[in-house]
Every structure is written in structure tokens, then in C-alpha cells.
Amino acid sequence: MNCFTFNHIALSVKDVDVSVLFYKNVFNLEEIKNTASTSKTRWLKFNDDRQLHLIPRPDSEIKTNKAVHFALATLNFNAFVEHLESLGIDYSDWRNTPKKDYIRNDGIKQIYFQDPDDYWIEVNNDY
């Protein structure tokens, strides 16, 4: 059987410049060269070399719900929550309680918030 590793996630976004700025500010991601094409798709890199590809789709309707999300883990959960607050980004627990984290049955803390295109992002301390 083949072995797989996670490579990247791609998101359709209304304004690629706004989204790049958001992900750089919130997660301190580094922008890297789009080596696949000469399109306006922009690539960002996490510190483990996994990538986020932001594909401009200014005329597309983007529909999301909280069950469709991606999750990132950090050792510095509380510091990250403070960082979100300093940026004025609203977050909630799974049940939509504002400015509250949630502790899962397995003891992992998590919060949810949305990017400029309303994609849901979970950040937890399951590092």
C-alpha cells in the first residue's frame, strides 16, 4: 500500500491579496513562489513545509459551515488566542460561544474563527 503525507490545502478566495495578508498576519506564514503556473494563485508555507494555496475566484460564491474546516495545532495555544485578540479577530468554541475555548473529551483545547472568505479554521493544542 502507498504511504501518503499531507502536501497542501487550496482555498478559493475573493481577494487573494486580502487573504494572503490575513494568513501572514495570523499564522506568520511565509509566501513562496507558485512553481506550478504563472496564474495569480499565491502560495504560503507553514513551518513544516506544508502549503496553503490561495486561488483567486472573485466572482465565485463561497459557502461554508463550521463542520467544513481545517485545523492547526500549536504548543502556544494561550499565546495564539491573545494574538487573535490583538488582531481583533473574533473566535468561539464549537457551540459558537464568543471568546471561549472548548475542551474536548480528550482534554484538547480548541477555538474556531473565520478567514476573510468565511472559511472556518480550528486551532487547538493537540501538538
Rank of each mutant, 00 (worst) to 15 (best):
E30K: 14
H83V: 03
L29T: 01
P98E: 01
L75S: 14
F70Y: 09
L29K: 06
K63E: 13
T97F: 08
K24I: 11
P98L: 00
R42N: 08
N28G: 15
Q51H: 08
E82R: 10
R42P: 07
N76W: 07
T35G: 10
A67F: 13
K66Q: 15
L44S: 04
S39N: 14
D59Q: 13
I32M: 06
D49I: 00
L54C: 01
N47Q: 14
D93C: 11
I32T: 10
S37G: 11
N28T: 08
F46T: 09
F70S: 07
H53C: 02
L75H: 13
E85Q: 15
K63V: 15
D59A: 09
Y91A: 05
T74F: 02
L54E: 00
A73G: 06
S39F: 08
P56F: 09
E30V: 09
I32H: 08
K24A: 07
S39Q: 08
K24E: 14
S86V: 00
Y91T: 02
L29I: 06
D90N: 12
H69M: 03
V81F: 03
D59L: 12
A79W: 04
F70D: 06
N47H: 11
N65I: 04
N47Y: 10
N47M: 05
F70N: 06
S86I: 00
E30R: 11
K99A: 08
A36E: 15
L72E: 01
L75P: 02
L84R: 05
R57L: 11
L72N: 04
A73W: 00
L87R: 01
N28W: 00
W94M: 10
N76R: 10
Y91S: 02
I32C: 12
D90A: 08
S86A: 07
D48Y: 01
N78W: 05
F27Y: 10
E82D: 15
F80E: 09
K100T: 15
D90S: 10
D49T: 09
T35E: 15
E31N: 04
H83E: 03
E85S: 14
T41R: 10
R50T: 15
E82P: 01
R42T: 02
Y23A: 05
I55W: 12
F80M: 05
F70E: 07
D59R: 07
F46V: 02
V81N: 01
N76L: 04
E30G: 02
K33D: 13
I62R: 05
I32D: 10
I32E: 11
L21A: 13
R95Y: 10
N78A: 12
N28L: 10
T38F: 09
L75K: 15
D93P: 09
T64Q: 10
F46P: 05
L44E: 07
Y23K: 05
H69N: 12
D93S: 12
S37V: 05
G88T: 04
